[in-house]
Lab assay of single mutants.
Amino acid sequence: YCPACDKSFKTEKAMKNHEKSKKHR
Rank of each mutant, 00 (worst) to 15 (best):
F9D: 12
T11K: 04
K10N: 08
S21M: 13
K22I: 05
H24D: 05
T11S: 13
M15K: 04
C2P: 01
K23R: 08
K16V: 03
E19R: 12
K13V: 13
P3T: 14
P3E: 15
K7H: 08
M15H: 05
P3K: 15
K23M: 10
M15R: 06
T11R: 04
T11W: 00
H24S: 07
C2T: 05
A14R: 09
K22Q: 07
C5E: 05
Y1V: 15
S21V: 05
H18T: 07
K23G: 12
K22H: 06
K10D: 12
F9I: 02
C5H: 02
T11F: 03
E19M: 14
S8G: 07
C2H: 08
P3M: 14
M15E: 05
K16M: 02
C2G: 00
K7W: 00
H24Q: 12
N17F: 12
A4W: 01
F9K: 06
K16D: 02
R25W: 06
D6Y: 00
F9M: 03
R25N: 13
C5L: 00
C2N: 15
H18R: 04
K20N: 06
R25F: 10
A4Q: 11
C5S: 04
K16N: 08
E19V: 11
A14G: 11
S8A: 12
P3L: 13
K13Y: 06
Y1A: 10
N17M: 13
A4P: 14
C5T: 02
K16L: 08
H18Q: 10
K7Q: 11
C5Y: 02
S8F: 01
Y1S: 15
C5V: 02
D6N: 11
D6S: 06
K10C: 03
K23T: 08
F9T: 09
R25A: 15
K16T: 09
D6Q: 05
A4C: 08
M15N: 07
K13D: 13
A14E: 02
A14K: 04
S21N: 08
E19D: 15
S8P: 04
K10R: 03
K13L: 10
P3F: 15
S8H: 07
D6I: 03
R25T: 14
K16W: 02
K7A: 04
M15W: 02
D6L: 01
A14P: 07
Y1I: 15
K7L: 06
F9S: 07
R25E: 15
S8V: 02
K23A: 14
F9R: 02
K16Y: 02
K20D: 09
K20P: 11
E12C: 04
T11Y: 00
C2I: 07
Y1L: 14
M15F: 11
